[in-house]
Design a protein around this nucleic acid. Structure first.
Lengths: 248, 248
DNA sequence: GTTGCGGTTTCTGTATACACAAGACTGATC
DNA sequence: GATCAGTCTTGTGTATACAGAAACCGCAAC
């Protein structure tokens, strides 16, 4: 959004602030910088190899993204992800994605989604091919999201969606999905795509609603199982939807 | 969100970057800095009375808000508001506000909305009292929005709503509403409030949908009338929804 | 043992200086 | 007279220096 390098692939030396932003953002999304980690300006500036000025600009952008929060006195810290915040994020996600697929169904270029449809049909087979298949599947999801963005046109809505996807990327790391769930998800996506091709906004929205419900349920269950496997004590009454204290 | 001055009213000297941000933001929202205005760092830093470093931080936040866009070569500029972008903003607004009132109806504290209800009942009377009445009415709207935010709880959703409201503030300036429309709007708000009090999410969402539709129609008509009054040539076929070229 | 106060240290917030790049202007040549 | 090239101006991107403030540590008193 800042530096247009559309013509050629990042031949531009890239500004220091942009480098710092991308590196920090990447490290936060990959979990290298764990939630709650306290960061100091000088320390990070040295590590990344830029001076404090561009680093501060990068941090300002991360704060705007909601990936980092300014601490009162000392430095800044990577924001926490609580189970509550996952539910909250999905409430926003639902509002945005239902609207997005609705508009996409009204305005779509059928051709683009017909191509996507073919690819999603091969997903179950794809997911039998181990880790590389899973990666290929995730690129497919990205192409799907890009097709939606292109069909929706609306920059405000697309911007809000991008923000949500940033946080989703962090959550995905928390609960790596099993391949059974991924096959289900592919089928759910196929339904949404069919509705969009058919130009049926209402069906597209309802299919997306179903998908998001399944997705949230799966994520929460995976997190819960991870917690149990690590031996965290969870009271029996809370096993279905464990309530963890909320930051923010 | 940055500086907590909850205890006392802005006794804190306030950081230079924060001052620059608030001043620029205020001037953009009030239209003092018109859309399309080109801004230069040195020039603005001098005018506001801060050095370039905090000014750049302020501009970075404004860019994140979508109020300002970086120009390729020279400086930055206040973003344009096209008629298309108003429609697009309302598409996002609809997604967010319908979800918000839905959740508010589920989670609300009835007491807060009963108080609001009483106040909104007096709105038609209030709006007979000229300009001060109109200002009082707008504070009422703000209280309504705050009550929704409090009832929704969800920080992600509330954050997205705040962003939308920022852009709405600019649009309101473009098309100052007549008092007839404001009385209608008050009645529409009352319906939403009643639905929330009744704990009926679906009714609340539908009432909000109606309100937004009326609001958008009114805004577009007001802008069109302004354009005609200024003598702008609009082709007859475009009178209902004039299509103006889109920035962003 | 705990609590309060003061000194010290470290970190942020801001200003400023410097380097590099992109336009603009001027002069020369065709 | 027009066009191109070189220089010059101007503005951003970055580094760094300085000042003020907040946290930490130690000491002392209760």
């Amino acid at each position: 959004m800042y530096t247009e390098t559309a013509t050629m692939g990042s031949i531009t030396p890239l500004r220091a602030s942009e480098r710092a932003y991308r590196q920090l953002r990447g490290e936060i999304l990959d979990g290298v910088l764990a939630p709650g980690t306290g960061l100091l300006e000088v320390e990070q500036a040295e590590r990344i190899g830029v001076s404090r000025t561009p680093l501060r600009e990068a941090v300002a952008r991360l704060i705007a993204d909601g990936l980092v929060a300014g601490r009162t006195g000392r430095g800044f810290e990577v924001t926490e992800i609580s189970v509550d915040s996952i539910g909250e994020l999905y409430e926003l996600r639902q509002a945005l994605e239902l609207q997005a697929v609705r508009l996409a169904a009204e305005r779509r270029d059928p051709q683009a989604f017909l191509v996507l449809r073919e690819q999603f049909l091969t997903a179950p087979e794809l997911l039998l091919h181990g880790d590389s298949g899973v990666r290929r599947y995730y690129t497919l999801i990205e192409e799907f999201e890009e097709a939606i963005d292109a069909a929706v046109v609306n920059p405000f809505l697309v911007g809000a969606l991008r923000s949500v996807r940033t946080h989703l990327a962090r959550i995905r790391r928390l609960a790596r999905k099993n391949s059974l769930r991924l096959r289900q998800a592919a089928a759910e996506h196929l339904l949404i795509i069919d509705a969009i091709i058919a130009g049926d906004p209402s069906l597209a929205a309802h299919a997306a609603h179903v998908h998001l419900h399944m997705s949230l349920t799966s994520v929460l269950r995976a997190i819960e199982e991870d917690a149990l496997a690590r031996g965290d004590r969870i009271a029996p009454s809370e096993t279905v939807y464990p309530q963890i204290s909320q930051s923010s």
